[in-house]
Computed example of a mutant assay.
Amino acid sequence: MDTESMLQVLDARRSVPSKQLAEPGPDHVTLHRMLASAVRVPDHGKLVPFRFIHIHGDARHALGDQLAARTRALDPDAPDAAVEKDRGRFSSAPDIITVVARLTPGHKVPEQEQLLTAGSVCFALLQAAQAFGFGAQWLTGWMAYDAQVAQSLGLAPGEKIVGFIHIGTPRLEAPERERPDPATLLTEWMPDA
């Protein structure tokens, strides 16, 4: 693939809202191929500071029921609409890959670098999903930071949810949105004379 073609692939990346993702999702072989590409990220120290949790099928609805119950527990006066929104968060996309950061405190590689590696996996997985013709969206939300949700998903101490990557067949073409002009973000550093 020539340079321009590769850049066009990168430039074509779009997030498809999770509510607009439907069956079919990737089959087992395709999903594993996507993950094989996603793990090819910078990883100082070769720590592999990430792992995956696959949520699909009826597990999506079970997790939604748990989120609804947790919403009610956190706020007994939460409007029914908010509870139902949380119940449905994982019901549209056929596959959700939870990317979990496995941080090693006190290692010579700072925890922030480990976390950035896990975040890079999320982005690479979005690219891999799009390469296979799927739509994908990287989401977090309150549930990514909730200790009870983490426990329910089997996270160990020191692990953190970095993202829920929703993957499926897009029901609409994701619109382009305005992107920043890199020239307005770039500065030149010069040493003091």
Rank of each mutant, 00 (worst) to 15 (best):
P170N: 02
I165T: 06
I167G: 00
K108T: 14
E159R: 04
A118N: 06
Q148N: 11
D86N: 15
T104C: 07
R87M: 10
L172N: 08
A73H: 11
G133I: 04
P191F: 06
S91Y: 02
L115I: 09
T169G: 09
Q114C: 05
V149G: 05
A128D: 03
G141P: 11
P110R: 12
L185H: 05
G88Y: 08
D75A: 14
M190S: 15
L115K: 11
H107R: 09
A73M: 12
I161N: 03
P94L: 10
V83R: 14
P191K: 08
I165E: 02
P94G: 08
A101G: 13
G168M: 08
M143F: 13
K108D: 12
C122D: 03
I165P: 01
E176A: 14
G135N: 06
A78W: 10
E113I: 03
G141C: 12
G158H: 01
A193P: 15
F164C: 08
E113P: 04
D86M: 06
G141E: 10
T104I: 09
T184Y: 01
A81L: 04
R102N: 13
D181K: 05
A174S: 11
S92F: 14
S152L: 15
P105D: 11
F134N: 04
L185P: 00
P191M: 02
E188N: 10
F90R: 09
V109M: 06
V109R: 06
P182V: 11
Q148M: 08
S92E: 06
S120P: 01
A81S: 14
W189C: 03
Q114W: 05
P157N: 11
P94H: 07
H166R: 03
R102V: 15
G168Y: 03
P94M: 06
G133P: 03
D75Y: 13
W138L: 03
I165L: 13
M143G: 07
V149M: 11
T117N: 04
A174L: 01
E111P: 00
P157D: 15
F164S: 03
I165R: 01
A128M: 00
C122G: 00
T140F: 08
D95K: 00
L185S: 05
L125T: 05
L139W: 01
Q112D: 13
V100R: 07
P110Q: 10
A156H: 12
V121S: 02
L115R: 13
F90Y: 15
A93G: 09
G154P: 08
Q112Y: 14
L155K: 08
D146G: 05
G135E: 02
Q137D: 05
R179V: 06
A124E: 07
A101L: 03
D146C: 10
W189F: 12
L155P: 12
E84D: 15
E111Q: 14
A147R: 14
G163V: 04
P110K: 11
E178Q: 13
T184F: 01
